[in-house]
Nucleic acid binder design. Structure first.
Length: 311
DNA sequence: TTGTGTTTTATTGCCTCC
DNA sequence: GGAGGCAATAAAACACAA
C-alpha cells in the first residue's frame, strides 16, 4: 500500500528521532533535523507535538500479536493499514488524538506476577520490567500504582464483608441470648436488632457498620501507604497492629468460634499475619511461552525506549 | 447497532520522605 | 527541592443487554 508523501516524511521523522538507532546516528539526525527546523529546541518541540499523532513512540505497546480482533481493528495503526485514501490518512494523521492502548494479556500477566512478588517498585526493577515488557518505565510505574489502588479497593471490600458478617453473627448471638433469658422482653427493643440479621443489606445497619469500617480505614490508612494485609508489600509488615485486640482501634472482637473456616482464615491472615515473600529475580519468574525471537520474554517490542519523549 | 455500565490507562495535584 | 506515593478523576477501551 502506497503511503502519501507527507505521511512518509513524518514517519521517517518519527523513526529518525525515536527509533533505537545508534546514539551517534540519532544525535546527528536529531541535530540535522533540528537545524532544518530552526534549532534544536524547535526540533524537539516539533517531535513532541507530533508524537501523539505518530502514535508509535509514546506507548511502547505493540498490538501486532494481540489476537482479539476487536481490539486490533479498532487500533489507530490498523486504520493506517487499511485506509485507502491518502488525504484522509494524512488528515487522520494530524487530527487523530492519541488513543489509549491496553497492555497485551501477556504483558498484564507478567506484571501481575511481578506484583504478586512485590507490589512496590524500586527504580531498578521498574527499568528492568520496562525493558522486559517493552514498555516505558513510567507505564510500568503507572500500572503498579493503579494495581495497588485496585488491590486496596478489593481488600477494603473483603475486610468490610468480613466485618459485616462477624457483626451480624454477633447480633444474632446476642438476640438469641436475650430472647432465651427473658421471653417477655420488650418486643420493640428487639425489632431493630432482628431486621439487619434477616437482611444484612439493611441500610441502617450497613451505615452503622460502615462507620466502623471507615473508622478502621481511617486508622489504618493514616500511616500506611496501602492497607495491606496480604500484599507482599509489607515483607516485614508492621501491620500486625491493625485491629489487634487490646488496641484502642479494635472495634469489636470477632468471636472466632463463630466464624466459618474461611472467615477465620481471612481474619487471621489479613489481620495478624502478613505473609513473607522472597523476591525472585525476574529471570527466575516462570513466564510462559518465552519466544525465541524476542529478547523481551516474548513480548513484541516496538523500540520506543529512550526517545525524545520525556515520559 | 447502540446505549450503558465497567475496566483500564493515564493525568493532576497534593503529601511525605530523604 | 526532587522523587515517589496516593486519591481523585478523565477518557479510551471493552463488555453486554436490548
Amino acid at each position: 500500500m502506497a503511503e502519501p508523501e507527507g505521511l512518509f516524511f513524518f514517519r521517517a521523522l518519527d523513526s529518525l528521532f525515536l527509533s533505537g538507532s545508534s546514539p551517534s546516528f540519532l544525535g546527528l539526525s536529531a541535530l540535522a533535523f533540528a537545524s532544518i527546523l530552526g534549532g534544536v529546541m524547535l526540533g524537539r518541540l516539533f517531535v513532541l507535538l507530533l508524537d501523539p499523532f505518530l502514535g508509535g513512540s509514546r506507548s511502547m505497546v505493540s498490538f501486532e500479536d494481540v489476537s482479539e480482533g476487536k481490539r486490533s481493528e479498532k487500533s489507530f495503526f490498523r486504520s493506517f493499514d487499511h485506509e485507502e485514501n491518502g488525504d484522509e490518512e494524512l488528515d487522520e494523521y494530524f487530527h487523530q488524538p492519541e488513543k489509549k492502548r491496553r497492555l497485551t494479556p501477556d504483558q498484564v500477566q507478567f506484571l501481575e506476577r511481578s506484583f504478586e512478588v512485590e507490589n512496590k517498585l524500586e527504580p531498578e526493577r521498574k527499568i528492568q520490567l520496562a525493558k522486559e515488557l517493552g514498555l516505558q518505565p513510567r507505564q510500568v510505574a503507572i500500572w503498579f500504582q493503579n494495581r495497588r489502588a485496585r488491590w486496596k479497593t478489593k481488600q477494603l471490600e473483603k475486610d468490610y464483608e468480613a466485618l459485616q458478617s462477624s457483626f451480624n453473627k454477633l447480633l444474632l448471638k446476642q438476640t438469641e441470648k436475650g430472647s432465651s433469658e427473658s421471653s417477655n422482653t420488650n418486643q420493640q427493643s428487639q425489632a431493630p436488632l432482628n431486621a439487619p440479621i434477616a437482611d444484612s443489606g439493611s441500610e441502617g445497619e450497613v451505615s452503622k457498620i460502615s462507620i466502623q469500617a471507615c473508622k478502621q480505614e481511617d486508622l489504618s490508612s493514616t500511616k500506611s501507604d496501602v492497607l495491606d494485609s496480604e500484599s507482599p508489600c509489607y515483607i516485614d509488615g508492621d501491620h500486625s497492629s491493625f485491629l489487634e485486640p487490646g488496641d484502642s482501634s479494635y472495634v469489636f472482637e470477632p468471636d472466632q468460634s463463630d466464624l466459618s473456616q474461611d472467615e477465620e482464615d481471612n481474619l487471621s491472615k489479613s489481620l495478624m499475619h502478613p505473609p513473607t515473600y522472597v523476591f525472585p529475580k525476574i529471570e527466575d519468574v516462570d513466564y510462559p511461552n518465552p519466544s525465541a525471537n524476542s529478547g523481551c520474554f516474548g513480548f513484541p517490542v516496538e523500540d520506543q525506549t529512550f526517545g525524545f519523549w520525556s515520559y
